[in-house]
């Protein structure tokens, strides 16, 4: 079966969920080979990749690969594309992996598709564009298809792969060493899942009313094991940190469940959440456009509804 390279995303040595989704997806199209780039590789990581069907694991775990911005990973993948001649390369549609995909495309003279929400035979990708208004099927017509896929696009399914390990060394070009990472600053993250990866997102908007009141949004998120998001009105007001903004100029999320509380549903917000599988809206204005998207909506005061919902979820757990 045709080999498909999957670039592993990892934090602190742990494989991210999106990588397991990509392995699951790759299995439907060929034989997945995981590519580990940078330090932190371990037996646990290998076991995790095997569990989701990696037939091979290419390991390039020298520290140097993570010491420079993006370019070393693109060089590693380009080297593998030329030695293994895979049928395709899959990466997560995260900001960094998209950049890796972009450089890889140039190095290998291949087309790249960003933000696929599905991938089928012949590597025809599905994309949802213009804030969810138009569905597109697109494909690479030159070189090796390089496709970045949005987190939460593929339901996880385990299936054991051989995970045959192969060490890879890359000698980085001078050009790849142009931008040196001199410090990594980890801002407190807490126990919540990462916004773009989370299966459930609870977002608050202007209707939340204040920074303090975001605690009711956080409470609901925590009872559901969800990430917290915010509209631009809420981040602009300084009620919630900017990195949690969902929308056109913020993060794009595609969770199983998106709960919008006190958010009107402006087109720029919808651009970041319209591909959520299920949408629940809580808003006191029955005319709010968010209700056009909602699978379930409650018209009323979020200050009553959100805490009641949190309580009910707790009770039924």
């Amino acid at each position: 079966m045709a080999e498909i390279l999957v670039l592993v995303e990892h934090v602190d040595g742990e494989v991210k969920k999106v990588t397991l989704e990509l392995l699951t997806l790759a299995r439907s199209l060929g034989a997945p080979s995981a590519v580990w780039a940078g330090p932190g590789y371990s037996a646990d990581a290998k076991a995790r990749l095997a569990e989701y069907g990696a037939e091979k694991v290419y390991v390039a775990d020298s520290a140097e690969i993570a010491d420079y911005v993006v370019a070393p990973k693109a060089e590693l993948l380009a080297q593998l594309v030329s030695s293994a001649t895979p049928a395709a390369v899959l990466l997560a549609a995260t900001p960094e992996s998209k950049e890796i995909a972009g450089r890889l495309a140039i190095k290998t003279d291949s087309g790249v598709i960003t933000d696929a929400v599905g991938l089928g035979d012949g590597f025809v990708a599905e994309q949802s564009i213009f804030g969810g208004g138009v569905n597109v099927r697109s494909k690479v017509v030159k070189g090796t298809p390089i496709v970045t896929v949005r987190p939460n696009s593929t339901p996880l399914e385990a299936s054991t792969g051989a995970a045959a390990e192969e060490q890879v060394t890359v000698s980085l070009s001078d050009a790849a060493k142009g931008a040196k990472v001199v410090e990594r600053v980890k801002q407190e993250k807490g126990a919540r899942p990462e916004l773009t990866e989370a299966a459930i997102v609870v977002s608050g908007g202007r209707g939340v009313g204040s920074a303090e009141n975001f605690s009711i949004i956080e409470k609901l998120a925590d009872t559901l094991g969800a990430a917290v998001g915010a509209s631009r009105a809420a981040t602009d007001a300084g009620w919630y940190p900017h990195q949690f903004q969902v929308g056109q100029t913020g993060k794009t999320v595609s969770p199983q469940l998106y709960i919008a509380a006190g958010i009107s549903g402006a087109i720029q917000h919808r651009a970041g959440m319209q591909t959520a599988k299920t949408i629940v809206a809580i808003n006191k204005d029955p005319e709010a456009p968010i209700f056009e998207l909602a699978d379930f909506g409650v018209v009323g005061d979020l200050n009553q509804i959100v805490p009641q919902l949190s309580g009910e979820v707790e009770k039924r757990k």
Partner: peptide, 19 residues
């Protein structure tokens, strides 16, 4: 979708939907 008006039980109804 289903849109309901909160009559003191909006959160409960949302929980029913999630369930």
């Amino acid at each position: 979708g289903t849109i309901v008006k909160d009559e003191g039980d909006g959160g409960t109804k949302a929980a029913d939907f999630l369930a």
